[in-house]
């Protein structure tokens, strides 16, 4: 049944296999392998938002790995790639950390609505489609001109809003918005309506 997805990149499938082991067999070895792959990325992700904040990066990396362990049964490969799932957990953990540490004074808990979006229609065709979309995004990211890559990194890795990005890059807000849109168009992630 999974012939399409089986042909797609093997290393990805190894992590997917580990993820299944964590969910089904509570395999701690598998979690260790996921840690080796993802924890450095989570640290880097936190450091792009707060350069030099190593303690924060360590805290969040550990927190995210624990969440992965606790939420493993909620992961569904048909609705999101493993990278996407881990990214959303890391993003939420980063928001949460910054909220608790002052950037956002608020009694709102981000976990409640920046959800990992459990989606209703999970079928194997969607899984294959979803994987193809992800591959396309990966390939076309590399083709983007530098200015567009730079602005996407500001937004996604540094967690800057469009207006914060415009201040930091010294560009008009309209320019930032149009660069982001241009980039998203090239990645064909914008759905027409």
């Amino acid at each position: 049944m999974n012939t399409v997805s089986e042909t797609i990149s093997d290393s990805k499938n190894a992590f997917l296999e580990d993820m299944t082991q964590v969910a089904v067999a509570r395999d701690t070895r598998a979690l260790e392998r996921l840690f080796d792959h993802y924890a450095p990325r989570i640290r880097a992700f936190c450091l792009s938002a707060q350069p030099g904040a190593n303690l924060m990066a360590d805290d969040i990396a550990q927190e995210v790995m624990i969440r992965i362990w606790n939420k493993a049964h909620l992961y569904n490969p048909a609705t999101a790639s493993l990278n996407t799932w881990v990214f959303t957990i890391a993003r939420n953990a980063r928001i949460d950390y910054m909220r608790k540490n002052g950037r956002y004074q608020s009694d709102i808990d981000p976990e409640e609505f920046w959800s990992e979006m459990a989606d209703e229609n999970a079928d194997p065709f969607r899984e294959a489609q979803q994987q193809r979309d992800q591959e396309r995004v990966r390939d076309s990211l590399k083709q983007l001109p530098n200015d567009q890559q730079q602005v996407l990194a500001k937004v996604y890795l540094e967690g800057k809003s469009h207006s914060e990005a415009s201040e930091e890059l010294g560009l008009p807000l309209g320019t930032v918005k149009s660069r982001v849109r241009l980039a998203l168009n090239k990645l064909s992630v914008i759905i027409k309506r």
């Binding site: 990325r41 880097a44 790639s81 996407t84 881990v86 990214f87 996407l152 996604y156």
Partner: peptide
């Protein structure tokens, strides 16, 4: 929801391509 899911893919790819 579908739109956000696709936007998350962009974040995920950038996220996965980092090194520490």
């Amino acid at each position: 929801r579908e739109q956000v899911k696709r936007l998350n893919m962009v974040g995920a790819e950038l996220f996965a391509s980092q090194t520490d």
